[in-house]
Design a binder for these strands. Structure first.
Lengths: 183, 183
DNA sequence: GTTCCCATGTAACCCGTTACATGATTTT
DNA sequence: AAAATCATGTAACGGGTTACATGGGAAC
């Protein structure tokens, strides 16, 4: 049986965490929970919902509403709980991928005018600051809650925050080196 | 005209940086230069080579060898230089993507046994340490060279190093919180 | 009365990956 | 005799993306 992508388990875990949510709600939750280290688009999430119901790992229930369109709500099944536990138990192959357009351009900085390099770093700083603020907001919101789930969420947000901070620091170093270098 | 992916410009920039290299050599160079923030597989690089020659941005020359198979070598053209400069000049949309299997699992830590969480963090630490050492090796190798290109390369490596260091620090924090928490 | 929220979905694309094939030469 | 290096390529897959369609109710 072909190995399933981690995204499938990400959605499965979300349904386990937020039982009875609709696809629409799950998209929103995914957007403000694990999007920072595992982004998924709306289309993809809906596709995974289909796959999970097909696998029998989640059960879909139709819910009619009066003041809003009808929706499907999702609950994890026992088979799904087992699959989630199995996935969490497997010694993770540490799949991680990082791609940064800013760094890629910076790698070719010697082909740019110094002003271009400066503005590149400035843009990067702005993006990192925005990201840091977003993560701090998440942490603030979770600070009130004291469940194990909230603690895990807070720590993953902190991971992103620490990363952003380190990179902002790096920008200082890079700018300093730009200053001392001649051209 | 459809926008080209950044990968195309990454390869174009490499050819500009290492003129007269073969596809085989470019794969190796890409592996030890920008792979840390813009990984590309061999197949993909060869495909971009085709695309770039088709665009007239690079010129391919056949070179016969006596003690090794024949090869194609690549040089950037004037049109290619212009395209590279244009790409570097465009205010980058800051495309960046990050996906971490370790974090994704950690996000669901409350569904794991404490020992599993500990080993997850331990594995993550090992991976980060290996990454940090790799980056330090790159910086050491580039430390001797004092060209603008080497400086840019060193700084991108430093970016990765600072990131890894911050994350290793985060692991300490996370482990501390695991200790104080009950379950 | 236009815009936003809820809610689900289709279509098309392509980037990037893994696995495999080939074959000569050089090194162990 | 086996393994590594050089060198280029094919085949197949699928994960993830963007863009678009639809439509009713609520809010401003």
């Amino acid at each position: 049986m072909a190995e399933l992508p981690d995204t499938t388990y990400a959605v499965l875990g979300l349904i386990d965490k937020v039982p009875g949510a609709s696809g629409y709600e799950l998209v929103a939750v995914a957007g403000r929970s694990f999007a920072h280290f595992w982004p998924i688009s709306q289309t993809l999430l809906y596709r995974e919902l289909d796959r999970l119901t097909g696998l029998g790992w989640v059960a879909a229930t139709r819910v009619e509403q009066l003041h809003a369109p009808s929706k499907w709500t999702y609950h994890i099944t026992e088979a799904g709980q087992q699959a989630l536990a199995d996935w969490l138990a497997t010694p993770t192959p540490a799949t991680s991928s990082f791609r940064s357009g800013a760094l890629l351009r910076f790698f070719f900085a010697y082909r740019m005018h110094p002003d271009q390099v400066r503005s590149l770093l400035a843009d990067y700083r702005t993006a990192l600051q925005a990201q840091a603020e977003e993560l701090m907001a998440i942490m603030d919101k979770l600070a009130a809650v004291s469940t194990p789930a909230a603690r895990a969420g807070r720590l993953t947000a902190l991971h992103g925050l620490r990363t952003a901070e380190a990179r902002l620091q790096w920008i200082e170093e890079a700018e300093a080196q730009l200053g001392e270098g001649d051209s």
